[in-house]
Amino acid sequence: MRELALHVLDIATNSVKANASLVTVEITAKDNLLTISIKDNGKGMSEEFVAKVTDPFTTTRTTRKVGMGLPLLKQAAETSGGTFDIKSKLGVGTEVTVTFRLDDIDRVPLGDIAETATTLLYPDMDFVWIYTVEDRSYTFDTREIKEALDGVPIDSPEIIAFLNSMLKENIESINGGLVL
């Protein structure tokens, strides 16, 4: 994938499919390290399944025989001096954590996190995004947004477009001119 933000969209889509009600995405750039973790409270996986889930031939999808999401992210991390870790528990949830060295020349750019976040707005599911660069941090919590919306659907086009520009502005300000 061209952006790490696209991997985030893809991995979070697994959480959606696992019937999570809450997904927390933490993105932290600090001391030359970029850490991304995606944690959900979905149905989780058994130990045996997690152990082989980064093998592309492990999938529960029925439309093709290989799953690509997790293997692709693992590869993106490990080919640029980073790490990949997945923890999961049946009935509890799943957490995927990857790290990258910010200065590694093979690292894929972080890309458009605002657009990824606004592609993941669901009336019946919540996301918390915690975006940190050095000591500056911004949190976007869809539960707070829904409260402010007072019944107006969070996935109405007008709201998605507004939240997209709100996130873009706030992320740019946290970046402080840095391109991640």
Binding site: L6, L9, M68, T116, T118, T119, P157, N164
Partner: peptide, 29 residues
Amino acid sequence: MATCGIAAGARPVFNELVDQVANRGIKHV
């Protein structure tokens, strides 16, 4: 928006559609 769709560029397509509908005030979509 399966992995293949995302890799091929589905996200900007989704956002362009949303922007068009929002900015042009299209109500029934």
